[in-house]
Amino acid sequence: MAARERDGLKAVPYRSAYRRVAWFVVGALLVLGPVVFTPYWLGLLTQVMVFAVLAMSLDILLGYTGLPSLGHAGLFGVAAYAVAVLSTAHHASFWVCVIGGIVAGTLVSAVFGLFVSHVRDVYFLMITLALGMVVWGLSYRWIPVTGGDNGISGIPRLESHAGLPVSGPTPVYYVTLAVLIVCGVLMARLVRSPFGYTLRGIRENEARMKSLGFNTWLHCYVSYVIAGAFASVAGVLWAYYNGFVGPTYVDLTASSEVFLMVTLGGPGTLVGPALGAGAIVLLKNVMSAYTHRWLLILGAVYIVTILGAPQGLWNLRVSSPPRGTRRTRR
């Protein structure tokens, strides 16, 4: 899917063959993950894939629609909290938790969307930041439900809750991989659909899209809700993977980290954010094992990327920016 989802670039034949081999190797590694990796690395990889879904969903807003959201972790958090509350306080069944989580996150994004879809650029940034802080404040202060600062622990493990006959990190890994593939394909189809092209049109020149008769408000609104729905899927996975939710998952730091994953990996593509998610999660966890100065290294990586690859790592592959990705703004 991902080889072709890069919008409209005509691939040279030998390059496409080369690329096919590369994708095959990555795919084989992912499928054979539990055989190749130790449980620790498998856990990290699961984490990467959860954040890949989240970063890709943010990219629908940031890269394709041109709406920089700083409250995306809030929507992710609402879904994670919904799973936590349903599974611990109400002892709900697996599917009730999964669907409840996704519906809760999507509903909240449908409500937030009404506020945020009116504004653009820095105002969008600020209002999403404010709404993200509202979610954080709720998670921190609505103590009877969210447990406040202590969060909610004791979420059942995915395989036991779903009644799978296997245990260990492998089932969670494969479920996450499957969800990542399904979400990736759906998002790839979305951004290459007429709707997706309209979003890009809005990003490039909203006034022109309006004059062509497009309801740009509605397009932005729907794009926000769709991004929220995918973020909720990631939130549900995260709740099950971690077995714990707390206010630190929904705060500004979490939101800006997702933002960095997208900008580092390459906004306006879907592989880029996944790559960014992988880079940040692995850098954080691997570096910190070797040095206490890992924050310094992470900071240096950001600066080098911004200077050397302002369009993100994935957009480095081509000498000129591919048609359809943004060139000038931001």
């Binding site: 130790t38 449980p39 620790y40 690395w41 856990g43 447990g147 600062d149 202590n150 969060g151 622990s153 004791g154 979420i155 971690n242 077995g243 714990f244 707390g246 630190t248 966890n285 094992a289």
Partner: peptide, 25 residues
């Protein structure tokens, strides 16, 4: 990381209650 990669036998530490609750399960 400590348990699955380094194979520690026993652990000690943590400061905040929230971390304590998160680790328990």
């Amino acid at each position: 990381k400590l348990v699955e990669r380094d194979g520690v036998h026993v652990m000690a530490g943590a400061l905040l209650s929230s971390t304590g609750y998160a680790l328990a399960p």
